[in-house]
Each structure stands twice: as C-alpha cells, then as structure tokens.
C-alpha cells in the first residue's frame, strides 16, 4: 500500500487503488539485483542495449507478420531459467508454437479476455509476473500506457506490447500510443519450403530491426534463420 501510494499517478486512478487495497497480503516485490537483466536467445542479444531484457523496461513489438514468433522468441530463454510469463488479451496465442520455441507451459498463464478491467488486471500482473505480454485494446490511451510502463519500472517486471491479432490485417496505427524503451520490428520475413501445391512451410528467415528510446545511434539489425532445430521437433 505505501509503495503504491508513493506513485501519484497510480494512486489517482480509483481502480488502481482498489487493487492496492485488495492486495495487502502481498509481499513487497523482491528483485534480485543479480538478475536485473533476463537472458534472451543468443540471436537477439545484439539487438538489445543490455544484451537481455532489462527488468522494468517496456518493449513494443511492431505490427508486421512475424510479431508473435518474435514475442515467443523473447519469452523462451527467460522462462527456461524459471521466469513466469502472462499473456493478456490474446486469445489467439499459439500454445503449440510456444512449446516449439521451448516455453514451459507450467510457468505460463493466459488471460485471453480481460474485458473492461484489462488495465487493472495488467497492472496487477506486473506486480507479480516477471514478463507480461499485453495485446492492448484499441482504446488504450497514452495515459494508460504511461501508467503501465511506470508500474513495470517500479515492480521490476518486463512489459512486452504485442500487436492484437483479432484479424490478420495489420493496422497502420501503432497499437501502443507511447514510445517504448525498445521497439522490435520484423522487417523482412521469408518462408521457404514450398512451391505451388508442393512441400510445406519449412524454414524461415527474418530480419529484425531494433530502435527506441534506450537505443542510441543507428537502428540495430539482426538476421534470424529458423529451421528444423528451432521448431524443436521431437519426432
């Protein structure tokens, strides 16, 4: 309660303060100073200023094909070392693909339809879950976005903004009305393995561009190649 009251813009919001009252049993967030940075997959290290996911940061994924796979790649390595993740507002989350990327399902919680309480629920998730993936609804306001980023910063969790997937058509308007610490966008995305009527989706090449407030200098690029090994084929 006292920690929350210290952040004025959170305490102002009546819904937020209702959460803080409901949670007086909660222990204060313990952040191990040794793990300020959550390790990521080696293919993404060069893109990120801290060579990993910095606790407290907000990362926005650009609204292009490949966004969800990029999100899964970001989640896999930290979750493999025991971190928890929650996915908010994304009923289309591909569970089988998540396991293919190596995400342990017993540390994953899905909140597919938070409804009108998405803001409060996301704030509450940020209190206790290491990585929160949010597909924000269209009505997400800049002030809401700022509050959630501040909450993540204060609680030491990572907020990943993933474009919503209600239809496969990507809107040109950004889904997150604020500038994030880091913005990762799949620039180029090429599937291989099939020709008209033959073969199947097999290999994939992606170009990822990183920009954002925390990245000084020119945008960083990474080229990813995914094949059989990445799909973790047991059989």
């Amino acid at each position: 309660m006292s920690a929350l009251a210290a952040v004025p813009d959170l305490a102002e919001n009546p819904a937020m303060s209702a959460i803080s009252q409901a949670s007086d049993l909660r222990e204060s967030a313990v952040i191990d100073p040794g793990s300020r940075i959550l390790a990521v997959d080696s293919s993404l290290i060069e893109l990120l200023p801290d060579r990993g996911l910095r606790r407290g940061s907000t990362i926005a994924i650009g609204d292009t094909p490949g966004a969800m796979s990029l999100t899964l790649t970001l989640l896999a390595a930290p979750m493999d070392t025991g971190a928890w993740a929650a996915v908010m507002g994304l009923p289309e989350f591909g569970v089988i693909a998540a396991t293919d990327f190596g995400i342990p399902l017993h540390h994953l919680a899905l909140v597919p339809d938070p409804g009108d309480t998405w803001l409060e629920a996301t704030a509450a998730l940020l209190d206790s879950i290491d990585i929160v993936v949010l597909a924000p609804p269209r009505r997400c306001k800049a002030s809401d976005a700022r509050r959630l980023s501040a909450r993540a910063r204060q609680r030491g969790s990572v907020l990943i903004i993933c474009p919503p997937a209600h239809t496969p058509h990507r809107a040109n308007t950004p889904c997150w009305p604020e500038s994030a610490d880091i913005e990762l966008t799949v620039r180029d995305n090429e599937w291989q393995g099939m020709q008209c009527g033959h073969g199947r989706l097999r290999n994939r090449e992606l170009d990822i561009v990183a920009s954002g407030r925390r990245l000084a200098g020119p945008a960083r690029h990474a080229h990813l190649q995914w094949g059989q090994q990445q799909w973790n084929l047991g059989a």
Partner: peptide, 15 residues
C-alpha cells in the same frame, strides 16, 4: 513461483 501464484490468484479474484 509463490509471488507469481499469488498474483494470478489475485487476477482470478479480479476477473
């Protein structure tokens, strides 16, 4: 794990 479980219980209470 405890912190996560408690947080998810809270969301359940909320939603």
């Amino acid at each position: 794990d405890r912190r996560a479980a408690r947080g998810l219980d809270r969301i359940r209470g909320l939603l």
